[in-house]
Design a binder for these strands. Structure first.
Lengths: 194, 194
DNA sequence: TGTACATCAGTGAACGCGCGTTCACTGATGTAC
DNA sequence: TGTACATCAGTGAACGCGCGTTCACTGATGTAC
């Protein structure tokens, strides 16, 4: 049956958030429409009143995940802009490694992106650019012959790759997983002139 | 019909290589038994004479991909062991970015690994450890306060993450993609004491 | 070496299942009077 | 403000499809004599 405009907008937002959480946790191919709708408290048919198909939900869910991740990450604390230390502590924590669902959409879906449609890939690029741009101004001086932009690109690559490797090895080789997080925490801090 | 032992072993090897190539290119969930067998010149039922199920083919294909990648990467040239430059040139090339199928299984499947079974994850960990161990002895001196092991971990994380981001952005934001490859080439060379 | 037969890798139809998507229907919402 | 009706978000059965897997069958291979 019909619902109020407000309720409909709420439901749409719930679908996007639920889908994003599930896609990050189990991969885009690994989650079906039926489960997303069920977790959002709907039957599967309802989805098509909000999105023309699964792919467009994928695109919106990624965009929303990147947007809210970016906002959370760059939020000012006590009026101060975020520091490099805060980015590094956040990305290289156990909570980041062990909670796919609640964290960075770039890290969660990086190797699935190339197989998605153009809109989705576009959102991914914007998200990556914004992360680099957010890190760049937090950099201090370091004994390295490289521009701030180059160092920001390195830090983003290492964070995304490091978290992915730490996740993939956390059960079978926890030593490697821990070592990856702590080595990156130390050496990226130094490279970033923390 | 039955085939000779030699032919059967050939077929098994073909299945593993074909599956690995397709999994790297389109993801593990993105490729079915039928297509793997078809590309290997068989009908789908034949697979089950060689593997009990898809998951065990996934595990063997990953192990084989990591093994042959490792051999290719660490092969001596003119009696000399591989250098850091060779690793960096290989990982940060367009051929690496654009040919998922023929390259590093770690880079291709890093964010799918956490969802695979224990055997598959174990193979992944071994592959990652071997890559770190291969890079460590190639490092020279650099103005960075970090052990060789820590620098090797950083380089591996940055290569895997950097290639993944370069892949995800190559169509919609080629500028970012190129910049990522060249920035990493330069800065990792410096950090590695190339 | 030649013959008879057991083995078993490969075939292809068939299985149940879950996928994304469609659609006739329902009934509360929002609107026109 | 009250009434009549059009709208349309949500329901749930049904669609075709491709998935992983099974299995009776085939026929060349490998073996026992």
């Amino acid at each position: 049956m019909k619902v109020t405009k407000e309720r409909s907008a709420e439901i749409r937002a719930t679908l996007i958030e639920t889908a994003g959480r599930l896609f990050r946790e189990r991969g885009i191919d690994g989650v079906g429409i039926a489960e997303i709708c069920k977790q959002a408290g709907l039957t599967h048919g309802a989805l098509y009143a909000h999105f023309p198909n699964k792919q467009s939900l994928v695109a919106e869910a990624l965009a929303h995940g990147l947007e809210s991740g970016h906002k959370r990450l760059t939020r000012k604390e006590k009026g101060n802009p975020p520091t490099l230390s805060r980015y590094l502590d956040y990305y290289l924590s156990h909570q980041m490694r062990d909670n796919l669902a609640e964290n960075c959409a770039i890290a969660a879906s990086v190797s699935e992106i190339a197989r998605q449609d153009e809109t989705t890939r576009m959102h991914f690029c914007n998200g990556a650019e914004r992360l680099v741009a957010a890190i760049e101004p937090t950099l201090g001086h370091a004994k390295i012959d490289a521009t701030n932009r180059e160092r920001a690109l390195l830090i983003v690559a290492a964070l995304i790759g490091g978290v992915a490797i730490a996740r993939g090895s956390s059960k079978e080789d926890p030593g490697l997983s821990e070592e990856m997080l702590s080595a990156l925490r130390k050496i990226l801090g130094e490279i970033g002139g923390e």
